[in-house]
Design a binder for these strands. Sequence first.
DNA 1: TGCGATTAGATTGTGTACGATTTATTGTTG
DNA 2: CAACAATAAATCGTACACAATCTAATCGCA
Lengths: 159, 159
Amino acid sequence: MSDSVSSSKLPLPLDHFLCFAIYSANHSMNRAYKPFLADLNLTYPQYIVMVALWEKDGQTVKSLGETLFLASNTLTPLLKRLEKMGHVTRQRDPNDERQVVIYLTPQGQALEEKAINIPECILAATGLTPDNIEYLQAQLSHLRQNLEAATETNTHIET
Amino acid sequence: MSDSVSSSKLPLPLDHFLCFAIYSANHSMNRAYKPFLADLNLTYPQYIVMVALWEKDGQTVKSLGETLFLASNTLTPLLKRLEKMGHVTRQRDPNDERQVVIYLTPQGQALEEKAINIPECILAATGLTPDNIEYLQAQLSHLRQNLEAATETNTHIET
DNA sequence: TGCGATTAGATTGTGTACGATTTATTGTTG
DNA sequence: CAACAATAAATCGTACACAATCTAATCGCA
């Protein structure tokens, strides 16, 4: 069955692309989070930034970027929106004026209470067992590390 | 070790969020594809649309959307860019003028040859065994289906 | 000390995503 | 067959992502 695809010369149909499985799972995860995050008036990327800050307050933009694999061109406008909403402050580090340190406001800290049971709601929506989830996470982390290693060293030899 | 997190009241640190594992794996996958897709002058979403069309030409926007889990507000501008690049044509179905059918041009068909070995390059970059990949795909597909089912029926009971 | 290199953020432009709305076409029902 | 509901795309506004570039601050080393 899996070797009788005749409508395409590609080795794999779209259904069997790992990249597409990740891509579409990511979209469905975003959609699953949306109603819960709407209560907090946050987008998903804003939410993971808040999660990172709830874990460790007072991080620089660079530090947040390393945690979340995002650069300043994504984080700066996002953090400005969080600042405008009153969840964080952005202030230059007096010891190194190049750096901007992000601090939670009391309001930003308080938001954690409203967000605290979202993960278990999502957990339920996944319909997976904790063992499955843990294994999936580990596999995806492993995959991410491999891809990053392969991408960094990739000088992309031209034909 | 995993039960000694004291800096957060959240049940899980960011490292253990499945959503984040998917989110960041998706980003790393995008970055891995980028150099290969740059040769084709395609973005990743444009690429998966082309893959869907190489698999089955002459699809409507709606049909493509169902395959890729994307709506017209995402697909319309993307397809217009593919049209401008000369890879596809967009034409109204004479039998139902509401529908727009997407056809590959000869140039769009020819592009498949240049794209045909990308999947194996990515496969190598993942550093995973075919068994691992197949299992990951299956798990992610299953997850997506569960999330969609849970999201659709989600009336999101208010407190 | 001073000047080039490095570093951290910010900015700009392009391209997704997607909620909400609009337009055009088709179906349906009295 | 006329009014209205349903459907398919397109449009609009907001918010990521990210390459490329710019600015300002710091570092390094002669």
